[in-house]
Simulated scan of single mutants.
Amino acid sequence: MLKGISPLLNADVLHALRAMGHGDDLIIVDANFPSVSTARLTSLGHVLSIDNVSAATAIQAILSVYPLDGFVDDAAGRMEVVGSPGEIPVVQREVQSVIDAAEGKSWPMVPIERYAFYDRAKQAYCVIRTGERRFYGCFALRKGVVPPDEYQT
């Protein structure tokens, strides 16, 4: 255990988050996503897990240490519902609330068509599988920067 760091962030997850650079994509997926086969194609090469918690709970822990990229419009994305791209399921609304709270402002997630999401996931730095069992609990978060102390507000 470490002070000030969520116990959900295991050593493997912390190592990956720390190793990522500005602009690298982090993919957080539900239990139904083909995470192992997709993760083999990522920079890390294997799937990571934050087990037995919802996507929102995992993302809340991640965003406690992970900055979002403020230079792009698609730093936070969600998988679109097939056949109903405008629909935003409860799991995605929960994650949207977590992102907004972590950033201290409204930071709308961009919708990503299902197969485009798979493609983005394959190009990502890594994939983290959660215990989320609700459909469409799949998200992409692009890493931002941590400014020098003199620029922090």
Rank of each mutant, 00 (worst) to 15 (best):
M1T: 14
G4N: 15
I5T: 15
I5N: 11
P7L: 09
N10C: 08
N10I: 08
D12N: 14
D12C: 06
V13E: 08
L14P: 06
H15W: 07
L17Q: 12
R18T: 15
A19C: 13
M20T: 10
M20S: 11
M20C: 10
H22K: 14
G23Q: 09
G23H: 09
G23W: 06
D24W: 12
D24I: 09
L26E: 04
I27T: 04
I28Q: 02
V29E: 00
A31V: 04
A31M: 05
F33N: 01
F33I: 03
P34V: 01
T38L: 12
A39L: 11
A39N: 10
R40I: 08
T42P: 05
S43V: 10
L44F: 12
H46S: 12
V47Y: 02
L48R: 06
D51E: 11
N52K: 13
V53I: 10
A55S: 15
A56H: 04
T57M: 10
T57N: 08
T57V: 14
Q60V: 01
I62C: 11
L63I: 11
V65T: 14
V65C: 10
Y66A: 11
P67A: 10
F71Q: 15
F71V: 13
F71T: 15
F71A: 15
A76T: 08
A76H: 04
M79N: 05
E80P: 00
V81F: 13
V81Q: 13
G83H: 14
G83Y: 14
G86I: 07
E87H: 15
P89L: 12
P89W: 10
V91Y: 04
V91W: 03
Q92E: 11
R93I: 00
R93D: 01
Q96G: 06
S97W: 07
I99Q: 06
I99K: 06
A102E: 09
A102W: 09
E103P: 01
E103F: 02
K105P: 02
S106D: 11
M109H: 07
E113R: 09
E113L: 01
Y115T: 02
Y115H: 04
A121E: 06
A121V: 06
A121G: 05
K122V: 08
Q123Y: 02
A124D: 09
C126G: 00
V127A: 05
I128G: 02
I128A: 02
R129P: 01
R129I: 01
T130D: 03
E132F: 00
E132S: 00
E132Y: 01
R133L: 14
F135D: 08
F135W: 09
Y136Q: 07
G137E: 05
C138Y: 07
F139C: 06
F139G: 05
A140K: 15
A140E: 11
A140M: 13
R142A: 00
K143P: 03
K143A: 02
V145F: 06
V145A: 13
D149P: 02
E150S: 14
Y151L: 14
T153C: 13
